[in-house]
Amino acid sequence: MIGIIGKKIGMTSLYDGKGHKKACTIIQGGPCVVTQLRTKSIDGYQAVQLSYDDKKEKNTSKSLMGHFAKASTTPKRKQVEFRCDDEAVWQQVALGQVVRIEDVFVEGQFIDVVGTSKGKGFQGVVKRHGFSGVGSRSHGQHNRERAPGSVGAASFPSRVFKGMRMAGRTGGNRVKVTNLQVVKVLPEKNLIVLHGAVPGANNGYVILEK
Results as ranks from 00 to 15, higher is better:
130 G>R: 03
118 K>C: 00
126 V>A: 10
126 V>Y: 08
99 V>L: 08
104 V>F: 04
138 S>V: 11
142 H>Y: 11
147 A>F: 01
117 S>I: 11
107 E>W: 08
116 T>I: 14
134 V>E: 08
104 V>L: 05
103 D>I: 01
99 V>I: 13
130 G>V: 08
115 G>M: 05
129 H>T: 11
138 S>K: 12
152 G>E: 05
107 E>L: 06
93 V>P: 03
116 T>R: 13
145 E>Q: 05
113 V>G: 00
99 V>C: 02
100 R>M: 03
107 E>S: 14
107 E>N: 12
107 E>T: 15
150 S>K: 04
124 G>K: 13
133 G>W: 12
104 V>P: 14
95 L>V: 13
143 N>E: 03
147 A>I: 00
153 A>M: 07
148 P>S: 02
118 K>V: 04
133 G>E: 10
120 K>D: 14
106 V>T: 09
154 A>V: 06
150 S>M: 01
124 G>I: 06
110 F>N: 15
137 R>Q: 12
93 V>G: 07
96 G>R: 13
110 F>H: 15
116 T>P: 01
112 D>K: 15
156 F>I: 04
102 E>K: 09
137 R>W: 00
152 G>A: 12
141 Q>A: 04
118 K>E: 01
93 V>A: 06
120 K>G: 07
133 G>P: 13
154 A>I: 07
105 F>M: 10
112 D>M: 11
105 F>R: 09
145 E>R: 09
102 E>A: 06
133 G>I: 09
147 A>R: 11
145 E>P: 05
118 K>H: 05
145 E>I: 07
114 V>W: 08
106 V>G: 09
123 Q>C: 14
97 Q>R: 09
142 H>A: 14
123 Q>P: 00
101 I>F: 04
135 G>I: 00
112 D>V: 00
96 G>L: 13
121 G>Y: 05
98 V>L: 03
131 F>S: 09
120 K>V: 11
105 F>L: 10
155 S>T: 15
98 V>H: 06
103 D>H: 06
116 T>C: 10
150 S>T: 05
117 S>L: 11
93 V>R: 05
138 S>A: 13
104 V>S: 11
129 H>E: 08
147 A>G: 03
136 S>R: 02
140 G>A: 00
121 G>C: 04
108 G>T: 02
131 F>L: 04
111 I>L: 07
103 D>Y: 01
115 G>L: 10
113 V>F: 04
118 K>Q: 07
138 S>T: 08
142 H>Q: 12
138 S>R: 06
100 R>N: 12
128 R>N: 02
114 V>I: 14
131 F>M: 05
105 F>I: 12
120 K>A: 14
94 A>W: 01
95 L>W: 11
129 H>L: 10
96 G>I: 14
107 E>C: 13
109 Q>C: 09
108 G>L: 03
156 F>Y: 07
124 G>R: 13
154 A>E: 00
154 A>M: 06
